[in-house]
Structures are given as C-alpha cells and as structure tokens.
Design a protein around this nucleic acid. Sequence first.
DNA 1: CTATCTGTTCAGTAATACTTCACAATATGG
DNA 2: CCATATTGTGAAGTATTACTGAACAGATAG
Lengths: 293, 293
Amino acid sequence: MDDAVPNLSTAQLNYLVAITRHRTWAEAAASLQVTPSALSQGIAELERRLGVPLFATDGRRRVPHEYTATVAHAAERMLADLDQVTRWVRAVGGGQIGRLRVGMIDIAAVHYCTAALRTFRRAHPKLDVGLTVAPTGELLGRLERNELDVAVCVDPEGSGPFDSTPLLSDALAVYAPPGVAPIGPPSTWGPWLLFPSASRTRTAIDQRLRAIGAPLVVEMESHQPEVLVEMVRLGLGWTVLPTTQAEHGPHRLSRASAEPLFTRTVSAVTRRGGAQHPAVAPFVAALVAALSG
Amino acid sequence: MDDAVPNLSTAQLNYLVAITRHRTWAEAAASLQVTPSALSQGIAELERRLGVPLFATDGRRRVPHEYTATVAHAAERMLADLDQVTRWVRAVGGGQIGRLRVGMIDIAAVHYCTAALRTFRRAHPKLDVGLTVAPTGELLGRLERNELDVAVCVDPEGSGPFDSTPLLSDALAVYAPPGVAPIGPPSTWGPWLLFPSASRTRTAIDQRLRAIGAPLVVEMESHQPEVLVEMVRLGLGWTVLPTTQAEHGPHRLSRASAEPLFTRTVSAVTRRGGAQHPAVAPFVAALVAALSG
DNA sequence: CTATCTGTTCAGTAATACTTCACAATATGG
DNA sequence: CCATATTGTGAAGTATTACTGAACAGATAG
C-alpha cells in the first residue's frame, strides 16, 4: 500500500499543469525549459506515487483519463496557493516592496480610477504597480490563476473563490442614432451595435433588452466603446453603453430613454485565501476613499 | 533572484506543519519518523527556497516569525488539497471501492439516520462506511483537515470552507422536572442541566434563554442527552433538548411550554473543493430521500 | 522512401535527502 | 559545582532522485 499522502514535488505538479495547457508534451516540456525526457519520466514518477495511471497510451499518443483533468485542476490550485503565499511572505518577510499586479476593466482604468491610481502611485513611489486592462471575465480568470493581486471589474456576485469590495454603481442606458425622433416603443428599437457575446455585460444587456420587448438584431460587435459610439453617430444602429462612456468626450450620444436600462456594481476583487499582497489593502482603501469622496 | 514559484516537496511542507503541531522540533521529527537532523536541514532548505527566514534563533531555541503561521496555514491547506485529490483519484482511477468516512452528531446517528445508514450499507456492500460520532464543532474540524469525507451535523451557515445540503429541521424545547406545576413565567425557570459551554448548540440555547428572560444558573453540563434526561427526571433541574431526544424511549420528559425554544438545521456538510469521494453524492442523496419520504 | 515529429528508454551525471556521528547550548538534579 | 539528559546544528558518507543526452520506435507528411 502507498503512503496516505505521497511525497510529490511542485515540479511534478507543474509538469501535469503544463501538459494540460499545451497541445503536445514536447511543447509543454519546452515551456518548462526541460527535455521531453524529463517530462516523461516526471509524469511516470507522479503516476507511480499517486498509484494511479493518469494517461492511457493510444498507439503512440498519450490520452488523459476523464479524472486526470480533476487532478490537474487540483494541482493548479495548489500551485496558485503556493505562488500566492510565496509572493506574500517574500514581500512581508523579506522587507521588500515588490510589485502589485492590478487588473481593471477599461472604464475603470480610463475614467473612474485614473485620479486614484495616480495618487496611489505617487504615495507609494517604491511600489511597482503593474496595470492590466481587460474585460471582467479575463480578469477573473487571471485572478484565479494568481496572475493578478487585485482586479477592479464587475462584481462576480459569489461565483468563484473571490472576495469583493463594492466601489461604485455603473448605469447603462440605451442610445439611438442622432435624428431618430420621436423614440417609439422598445419593439421599434434596433438594429444593435453591442459588446461581444462572450462578454458578461453583453449577457446582461441581452437579458434586459429581451425583458422589455426589444428585438435583438445585432449588426456589429466590439469590445471598444469608442468604436460603438462612432458607429452610432454614423447612424448604423443603436447601442447600450455605460452612461459615463457614452456621454463623455467631444462626441456625446443622447439617451433614448432618460432612465438607465440597468446598473451593475463595479468592485475591487481579490482571490480568496489568507495570504494577500500587503499592498492590496491600502490600494483598495485608496480606491474606496477616492470614489466615495 | 529566486524563481517565481520555488520547487518544493510536500515533505518540506509536512515538516513545517509538524513543527506547528508539536512543542519541540525533536517531537515533530519523531512524529514524522525522521531524525532531528533531517528536519533541521529540511527547514533550512525550505527557507532557502522561499528566500525568507521562517524562524529566528533565540539562544538555542527557534522561534517562529509572525508571518510563519500564515505560511504554515497555507502549507496545511495545500496538503489537505493533495490528500483529498489523492484519495479521490485512487478511489476513482484505481477502480477501487475504498472507504467513506462519515461523521454524525449523536442524534443523527442514533435517531434520524439509523434506517438510512442501514439501507445505504446494504445497497453498497463493497463500500467500507466508517462512522464517527462527535459534536458539530469537532466534526467540522475534522472535515477541514480532510479526516472525514462528509458530516451530518448542525449547518455551519457559511462559516468555513464548506458546502452543505440541508436535511431536516430539529426543534429544541424546554423541559421541567416532573411535578413542577403550574409552569411559571421564564424568570422562574431553572436551575439548568445543559450541554457543555463549548458546544455550538449550547451557545444558541444560552442566547435564546437570555432573550426570553430566564435566569442562567447552570448546575451541570454533559454531552450525553440521556444523562441530562435522567437528571431532570430525578428533579435536579431543568434542561433544553431536541424534542426527539427528550420525548423518545421509556422515560420521556414533558415540555414546559408547547412551542419549541428554537430550531436548528441539520445538514450534510462536505469540505469545499473539486475532488470529493465519489460515494459522497449517492450517500447524501440516500439521506435526503430517507428523510423527506 | 526520406524527413520530421511524437513520446519512450537507457545510460551517465549532478543534485538532493537522509542517516549517523560529533558537538554546542540549554536545562535538571544531586 | 559537576554529571546528565535534551534540544537543535553541522559534517561526512550513502542512497535516492532528477536531469541531460543519445538512441529508439510509432506516426505523419511530402
């Protein structure tokens, strides 16, 4: 009988995770800077210690079992935990200053948080604040893999292992092309120029538009609100945007209806777990102070 | 500069955890079946790879830093994850049947779930169902350390990394000694024979009794409801018990007040995390079926 | 068929972890 | 005060382990 808890190395877990992230083992080995031989032997050793084969051999190709994905996922989680606590203890115990990896959705980076970011950077000159701008879904994925220390994005509302601090409410409204007047009932609205279908905000938009009976004919999709604004100004269709993005800058749109279609909560989100980068707390506090004052 | 994610072995994490769980390093080394020298060198290697000292040296004694507890806690979590996924993959991938470790509070084991347990064991003859009976707090602790696969206990209500499936509502009522009549207002009740102060249910009982204005003079404490029932029958005082425990068997108590003092939810609780023992789901399903039908 | 990609296997070598032994610093007890 | 046990550390030797490099075998493409 094998030991209750086998003695593995993180390198072996890394092997497994790398394999799930690359199409071939050779590619995975290259990404780890080891020879394919080392990878092969490492996985064999891992299987031996777990006491269970992780890959079946189909001809020359290695095919994972159904349960292998679960093991790989657990390995990924353990490595993320290790990465998190390592960064934390180095920042704290080493007395270092370190690097704070911040993610933001575009509207937060270019509108809501610009001043707060600048102020925070000035207050912590030795802290290297790295900023990544991406949609909410991608930011949450990175947070889960511990590639970010904190993200400012749409609140995940309890889905996934996250803690969130609400920062502000963001209203989204419907905008018609210039010259459409008077505005008819929702059944006459469209066609639409919207965020891409994969986006979380888009899902919410579709839901709300359907609820009020607007036909969902989508002409174009883009992640860039400026593009959508321009297209609407050219009369190509209608759109739904955060009011701050549509009614800001030289070319403003005007609402089809005075009241917003719906509001979403923008929050500061962190990966759940005891060990956070020590600069996260002051950073979130700075955001809260800047946005409430 | 060290690697982003250092290459550790689970043995090293075990060293750190063992040290936190024993008073001296020699004791910890003995518990791991290695020499003190190996432990010392292993910790030194761990510190080297993390790039941070975990223990300061005060004379001859080694004293942990403040942040060391956090690292140890993360290590504990990673080891629990590993243990969990290892058991799971061995049960699934090895085609084994394995052992299901069930925990229950006494009332569930001897009253609510006896029939369901017997039926489930008969339906899965090759599955070794190990049953541990203990108070809720202890069961949750064991669950967190992955010493149990599932526990039937008072619902933790979101505290801790648990998922829970509600099974039933359990009413607790106040019982006076025989011959006390008529029953006066709550301010005349007592003295009390109750569960021990450390118990979760006792905390809830105290809170409710205070709320209705009953004086809290506690004569005796016991974990065993049978003992409390007997003492009340002998006229030594009043008690608060689950109605099913007090009004069952040959020597029944009668309530001081028809309506229960409060109700608690008994749930099937598991440790949160992707990899569960494959028999947990059918087991919980069997409980739900038996208790709802 | 050749060429190239895949993953495996087999040496040989470098790194690593462990035990044994010796030792320094603390108690404990007479 | 001096014995005596105990705690943690360091050094040497040994066994295990992990890696590289080369040779090998199945698969696929031109």
